[in-house]
Design a protein around this nucleic acid. Sequence first.
DNA 1: CGCCTATTTGATCTGATTCAAACAATGTGG
DNA 2: CCACATTGTTTGAATCAGATCAAATAGGCG
Lengths: 247, 247
Amino acid sequence: MASLQSPPPFPLVLKLESITDLSPEERQALLGLPLRVQEFRADQDVVREGDRPIQCCLILEGFACRYKLTEKGKRQIFAFHTPGDIPDLQSLHLKTMDHSLGTLTPCKIAFIQHEHLRELFRQHPRLAEVFWRDTLIDAAIFREWMLGIGRRSARTRLAHLLCELFMRLKVIGLAGSNSIPLPLSQAEMGDALGLSTVHINRTLQELRGEDLVAWDGGILTILNWEGLMQAGEFDTTYLHLQDCAAA
Amino acid sequence: MASLQSPPPFPLVLKLESITDLSPEERQALLGLPLRVQEFRADQDVVREGDRPIQCCLILEGFACRYKLTEKGKRQIFAFHTPGDIPDLQSLHLKTMDHSLGTLTPCKIAFIQHEHLRELFRQHPRLAEVFWRDTLIDAAIFREWMLGIGRRSARTRLAHLLCELFMRLKVIGLAGSNSIPLPLSQAEMGDALGLSTVHINRTLQELRGEDLVAWDGGILTILNWEGLMQAGEFDTTYLHLQDCAAA
DNA sequence: CGCCTATTTGATCTGATTCAAACAATGTGG
DNA sequence: CCACATTGTTTGAATCAGATCAAATAGGCG
């Protein structure tokens, strides 16, 4: 009875409810946003450094990342993005993109006109705060990554990243009880952690050798969550999950 | 005739006008914010990781930084802050501090109740956008630092930092034509760039040896701006200075 | 002066990069 | 269904940028 199943959850609502509470009206307003949906293949740029977008991207399906290249062509990935994220929300207030957004896997992406977001914020001022909050969490994640890249060992950094991805995918309902899809190449992980592909490979083997995780066919399985958190010096505070109102 | 001089410019207005335009009413509203001013010595924490502030800090005088420590006690500095900055503006929307704010030099700091900022935003909704914009630029700087720490050489990173500090101090009127106060120890620069003190020392000598900069008595003099920008792969785009309206 | 902190220098070590090549998996077209 | 191309993973060896350790020098200042 396919016709009886409830509509698929709207990723944006799921994502925002992982960091705050939404009123029914707010939820309704988000559902009503006019979207233009577009499919992308893997490894395609969605927005490029230097662009001056008049719309924001909402990821509906797939993995994407934000990155920038060095003059020598080295890449640093700043963030991984998953369904429900609006990676270039900043373009609403910063006219020129200072970095690029690209897909990592095939993606379904919805475009929302700045115009419509501004109108949404006029109607629901608290939603503006929620989105502001979201960009602040974004920045908090940058800081945590900086701490890792600047001051932690390769092993700690990688373990930390895996912990983060597990947590983030969990709260948006994309994680199994102890596994997540991890459709990243080792080169991409290296670009995110400021390490070479070769070193990622060896470090990953280390974590697997200690039975902290398993990785097969794009699926990461957490074998020892406590151990992995410890190896990654992982503390969820910086993700600011739902601490808006409560303790 | 000291009594005839105009009042000292309010750093916050100066800072915000470096990234956007303000209407006379908005300027007036900012000037009217109730402040509680407090003096700090160097190397003191103003806000600490884990705190749940009910106010924001506005730096009036001095240098401060945001940082976090590794479990092994290593420090990563995320940002340097100068007069006009509100380094913990995020506490308005993220209840728990995920990092600390400390002084680097003696500082004069004004505290603004969250309450008063919220009221300000109610009266002047566009100011909320301006402050949001400011936190987005903050994040853009984090990304640029990440790119440096992750993918650039020590020499490039250091040159880049010096370029950034020069530009930022210039727009708030704290730079000479080719010099700025740089009251940082080499250890602090190291903590910001993810390098050891010793290596900062040698790298700094390199830049001085090439006559790109001079550094004496806490004053950094730019001897060759073009050369320094090139050495640092420096491009101001990420600072988003006043691109709000114009080109 | 003497104390404390910051800079500088030298020597040694190491985590991570680079280069190179093998190997595995996946997909493509004939 | 196989040959081939392509892309990602794995392994080994050599190298290097930057860390660490240790000690000397130089400022600032009560």
